[in-house]
């Protein structure tokens, strides 16, 4: 079967799988960004307890596999009385995993904002929350965007794992079609190309645009 025939026959399933993959990608990214921000600020806290909690979280999620975390959240968490639906478990696990990596990026970004900016904000009597939100974070975002681009690509790749708890994403559809047709080269090849198109021709240009946008906002372009 030629690739064209193949796609014309199976495009509805590929499309619905791609939709789920994109949804998982966006939701995990949101979870990751929120968690990264919270844990980065916690890790920079001077309160030992708060700092310890953040360090523990980051080390646990960076020290184990995403797949192990996903299985644990999906199969073991119900024993603690917290049952997540598979779709939810998928993006929560990926988001929590990437959030631990992201926390280090956010912390690095915040630390690299020049000291003078902190002092100036203090000098004009800003509260520490306002200083962080209006002065430090926007500049930190400008600094940490390129590594975040890489992390978000890792999130996109990580979403393929949700197929293992039978979320019907692109990877899952590819596996199912392969199992019923044995057209491995066509189906896995097509899926690889779809992931590549999302990453290279949709997400990367968006990040470039966003980097330029932030640079203009910060008066650096």
């Amino acid at each position: 079967m030629s690739l064209f025939e193949f796609i014309s026959q199976y495009w509805p399933r590929l499309l619905s799988g791609t939709g789920i993959t994109v949804a998982q990608f966006l939701l995990s990214s949101v979870v990751a960004i929120i968690l990264a921000l919270i844990f980065a600020l916690m890790k920079m806290s001077s309160n030992r307890l708060v700092k310890g909690a953040a360090v523990t979280y980051i080390e646990i999620f960076r020290g184990t596999s995403l797949l192990v975390q996903l299985y644990w959240i999906f199969f073991v968490l119900p024993l603690f009385g917290l049952t997540l639906e598979k779709f939810t478990a998928g993006y929560i696990a990926i988001g929590m995993n990437a959030g631990a990596y992201g926390a280090e990026l956010v912390r690095g970004g915040i630390m690299s904002v020049p000291r003078g900016q902190w002092e100036a904000a203090l000098a004009i009597n800003m509260s520490s929350a306002k200083r962080m939100w209006r002065i430090i974070l926007p500049q930190a975002v400008g600094i940490m965007l390129p590594p975040w681009g890489n992390l978000l690509i890792e999130i996109l790749k990580g979403t393929a794992l949700v197929s293992l708890i039978s979320v019907t994403d692109l990877m899952f559809q590819a596996k199912q079609i392969n199992a019923s047709t044995y057209l491995s080269a066509q189906i896995f090849g097509t899926a690889l190309i779809i992931y590549y198109i999302i990453a290279r021709f949709m997400f990367t240009p968006f990040m470039r645009w966003f980097e330029g946008f932030m640079a203009r906002k910060l008066g650096k372009a």
Partner: peptide
Amino acid sequence: FVRSTPLLLQIFF
């Protein structure tokens, strides 16, 4: 290409 596609899919492929 390899860096922007999932390892899981490459394993299957």
